[in-house]
Design a protein around this nucleic acid. Structure first.
Length: 402
DNA sequence: CGAGATTCATGTGAAGTATACCTTTAGGCTTAA
DNA sequence: AAGCCTAAAGGTATACTTCACATGAATCTCGTA
C-alpha cells in the first residue's frame, strides 16, 4: 500500500460504519446483566454464599460442569454482586479468583499459595522460600486483615491431576490455624468424576455443597446468542440462520456457550474486515478455523521452547501421514529438530512427560496403548483440523529458527 | 490348539542434579562520638 | 561502638536427568489332545 493510499485507508476506515455497536458484549470478560437458563444455579449459589453478609463462614461449595456451561460466569456474577452489597454495608469480605491451570502462575502448591498471598497484597518471591513459610505468610497476612475470604479455584481438577490432592487437604485445614479470619472455598471442575478418587476427608470438607451445571442445549444457546447479538450488532446485520448455526456448532461440542459466542464474535470481525454489510453463514466456518488457529497460536506463544520443539516434531510427522505417530518417532524427529536449532535435546523421559502435557492442553491426543510384542507406547494424533496445520507449522518453524 | 512364558518399546516412579533464588549470618568497612 | 553493606553459607522450588522397574498384549514355546 503506497503512503497516500494508507492515509486514505484510515480516512475511509473512520467513515465506514462499524458492524459493531458494542463488541464487548461478545467477549469472554463480559458479564451480562442477566444470565439466562442459570437462574436456579444463581439462586443456589447466592443462598449458599449469603451467610458471609452476616460474617458467618459459608459452606464450601463444589461446582461441576462442562466448559462453557456458565460456571465461571455465574460465579463472577454472584460474587461481584455480593461484594457490592458487602461494600455498601461495610462488611469485611474478600474474594479471590484463581485459575489453577495457568502455567507458571498457579500450577504447583507453592505457586498457588504464593498467588493467594499476593492477592492479599503481600509480595512473595517466585522461588526460594519453603512452601511452609509461604503458608505462614499467607496466614499472617490474613489474620491482619481480619476478614472473611472466599477462594475460588477454577479448573481445580487439572491441578490435582498434576500434583495430587495433598494441597486440598492443607487448604481445608487452614481454618483451624486462623483466629480472626475465616476461609471458604469454591472449587470449579470440568470433570464430573473428579471427586470420586479423592481423599475422603478432603471430599467431605470441600464439597459441603455441590452444584451441577448442565450443558446448554441448542435452543438455549440460540437465546443466549440472540440476547448478546442484539447488544453487539446493529439490527438486521446478522444473516438469517447465522445464530442457529453458531448454536448448532457449539451444541455439538457439549453445549459450550463460550465457543458459540466466540464464533459469533469472530464471524463478525471477519465480516467487518471483508467489508461485508452483513454477517453471513459462511463467515462462521471461517471463524471456526480462525479460533482454532488462535487457540493453538496462543499455546505456542506461552509454552517454553522445548514444548514447541516437541510440538513441531509432532506436526512434522503428522503432516506426512494420516496414521497415528508413536513416542519413539517423535523423539527421533525432536532430536533432529534440536540439532538443527542448536539446542541440547532433553531426555526421552522428559519428552514423554511433555507429550502428556500437550495432551492435557488438548492440542494433541495421546493415548497409551500396548502394541503387544512390539512394545508399549503413546499413540499420538492431532486434535486440530488438518487445514490449520501448515499455517501453524510455518510459524513454529520461524519461531524456533529452524 | 491353547495355556503360559517371553518380549519389546516405552510408561512411570523415585531419587538425584543443576540452577536460580531466598534468608541468615559473619565479617569488613564506614561513620560518628 | 554502632550502623551499614557484602559475600558466603545454608536452605528451597523447579525443571530436568538417571536409574530401575512396571506394563500389557502380540508372539513364541511347548505340552497335550
Amino acid at each position: 500500500m503506497a503512503q497516500k493510499e494508507l492515509s486514505n485507508f484510515f480516512e475511509d476506515y473512520i467513515k465506514k460504519e462499524s458492524l459493531f455497536i458494542n463488541k464487548k458484549a461478545l467477549q469472554e470478560s463480559y458479564t451480562p446483566k442477566n444470565i439466562p437458563h442459570r437462574e436456579e444455579q444463581i439462586n443456589q449459589t447466592a443462598s449458599i454464599l449469603a451467610p458471609v453478609l452476616r460474617l458467618e463462614k459459608p459452606s464450601n461449595l463444589f461446582i461441576y460442569g462442562k466448559p462453557g456451561s456458565g460456571k465461571s460466569l455465574t460465579m463472577k456474577y454472584v460474587t461481584s454482586s455480593l461484594l457490592e452489597t458487602a461494600k455498601k454495608n461495610k462488611i469485611q469480605i474478600k474474594i479471590v479468583y484463581l485459575n489453577c491451570k495457568l502455567k507458571r502462575v498457579s500450577d504447583t502448591e507453592y505457586r498457588l499459595i504464593a498467588e493467594l498471598t499476593r492477592a492479599l497484597g503481600k509480595d512473595v518471591p517466585a522461588t526460594g522460600l519453603p512452601t511452609e513459610e509461604v503458608y505462614k505468610l499467607f496466614i499472617k497476612k490474613l489474620e491482619e486483615e481480619k476478614t472473611l475470604l472466599i477462594i475460588i479455584l477454577d479448573e481445580i481438577d487439572q491441578l490435582v491431576n498434576k500434583i495430587g490432592d495433598e494441597i486440598l487437604y492443607n487448604l481445608t485445614r487452614l481454618n483451624s490455624e486462623l483466629k480472626n479470619s475465616e476461609v471458604s472455598f469454591i472449587g470449579i471442575s470440568n470433570s464430573l468424576f473428579f471427586m470420586n478418587d479423592l481423599d475422603p476427608r478432603v471430599k467431605s470438607s470441600l464439597s459441603e455443597e455441590e452444584l451441577v451445571f448442565p450443558p446448554y442445549n441448542a435452543i438455549q444457546l440460540q437465546s443466549i446468542l440472540r440476547q448478546r447479538a442484539e447488544l453487539t450488532f446493529k439490527k438486521g446485520l446478522v444473516e438469517e440462520g447465522v445464530i442457529e448455526k453458531c448454536a448448532a456448532y457449539a451444541a455439538r461440542e457439549h453445549g459450550d456457550a463460550r465457543k458459540a459466542l466466540d464464533l459469533l464474535r469472530v464471524a463478525g470481525e471477519i465480516a467487518e474486515r471483508k467489508d461485508q454489510s452483513k454477517i453471513l453463514i459462511k463467515n462462521i466456518d471461517e471463524a471456526e478455523e480462525k479460533i482454532e488457529r488462535d487457540r493453538v497460536l496462543d499455546i505456542i506463544n506461552t509454552q517454553p521452547k522445548q514444548f514447541n520443539l516437541t510440538l513441531y516434531s509432532i506436526f512434522h510427522l503428522c503432516q506426512n501421514s494420516s496414521k497415528p505417530v508413536f513416542t519413539g518417532d517423535v523423539y527421533e524427529s525432536y532430536k533432529e529438530a534440536c540439532s538443527k536449532g542448536g539446542t541440547r535435546p532433553l531426555t526421552q523421559r522428559r519428552v514423554s512427560d511433555i507429550i502428556a502435557e500437550l495432551d492435557m492442553l488438548g492440542i494433541i491426543n495421546a493415548k497409551v496403548i500396548s502394541k503387544g510384542r512390539y512394545g508399549k507406547t503413546r499413540e499420538i494424533r492431532l486434535e486440530i483440523p488438518q487445514s490449520t496445520i501448515p499455517n501453524i507449522n510455518d510459524l513454529l518453524k520461524k519461531g524456533l529458527d529452524l
